[in-house]
Design a protein around this nucleic acid. Structure first.
Lengths: 147, 147
DNA sequence: GGGCTTGTTTTGAATAACTCAAAATAACTG
DNA sequence: CAGTTATTTTGAGTTATTCAAAACAAGCCC
């Protein structure tokens, strides 16, 4: 077996193909993002540190910013939460955030993209994208706070 | 004429009816929010300071938090922006944010509330609200960056 | 395969936007 | 008007992130 999680080579290729130089911390960061979705910079840092000792939080922020700009990852910023990064990219999917514990899950747009992308009065704005965030209770929190 | 902008008495009444004590800084803050929509705490502070000298930024944050909790104002947190407060409340309307200058405008939900409130796979979440943010270029920025 | 150029990361500091807490103060209740 | 309790001031602290200079290392060239 040459594949442990997502082969480091595959990660390196993604990075290279995005036009970025391949470095140890970058491979590690991308690896973390493959395994965990909707993760914040601080947690990425803590996951990367043991893999690549000496990595700094600032580097992680820089890497995540570079990845985001290169389209390798997507950055979302739900209210009351630090920025979260996810590997799933290229499809404009949406998110549900638990009002209890902050857990985040992906949500596919119900109705194609049309309804969301056509506000009734756009006030002259030239709309590019629509971002939908659903707020509600996750299963675990529903159980914790019955009714 | 007894009405200058929104009568201070009317503002005081709103505050009292929300179950809060009426104080000078609170009336001033609410007054600012009546005149300007989608305004950030810092700017509220700068607008209130000359009206009620001695007001602190922390007080403004506290007031805005109290107002938000009491349902007097709504707080939104678009990505890449500090929290914004608006007086329009009680109807779940949405927002367009200009990707150029950050200007924010209200947008009424196109299709009632249904489509937005019914994600295809809610992953077991008990959805309470849906928040939609449109991103695009405002008229001014369209003019600035032709084609 | 060693040097070079340029992109990355480290190191160290700074910032923005809030939040927390204790003491002073002022609204409403009676 | 006095008392109780909510609010605000004052002062400090935090979180999440950004900036900048110097050290470092990838990938290209020969």
């Amino acid at each position: 077996m040459t594949t442990e999680r997502t082969d480091a080579t595959a990660l390196a290729d993604s990075i290279r193909h995005a036009g970025l130089r391949v470095t140890e911390p970058r491979v590690a960061v991308l690896g973390v993002l493959e395994n965990e979705s909707h993760i914040e910079a601080e947690r990425v840092f803590r996951a990367v540190l043991p893999l690549v000792p000496g990595t700094s939080v600032q580097a992680v922020h820089g890497i995540l910013a570079a990845f985001t700009q290169a389209g390798l990852v997507r950055r979302i910023e739900p209210a009351h939460s630090p920025a979260l990064y996810e590997r799933r990219v290229g499809d404009n999917h949406h998110h549900v955030v638990c009002t209890g514990c902050g857990a985040v899950e992906d949500v596919d747009c119900t109705v194609g993209h049309s309804p969301c992308l056509t506000p009734s009065s756009s006030g002259g704005f030239q709309i590019q994208t629509a971002e939908v965030t659903f707020w509600g209770l996750c299963p675990a929190c529903q159980a914790a706070v019955p009714a």
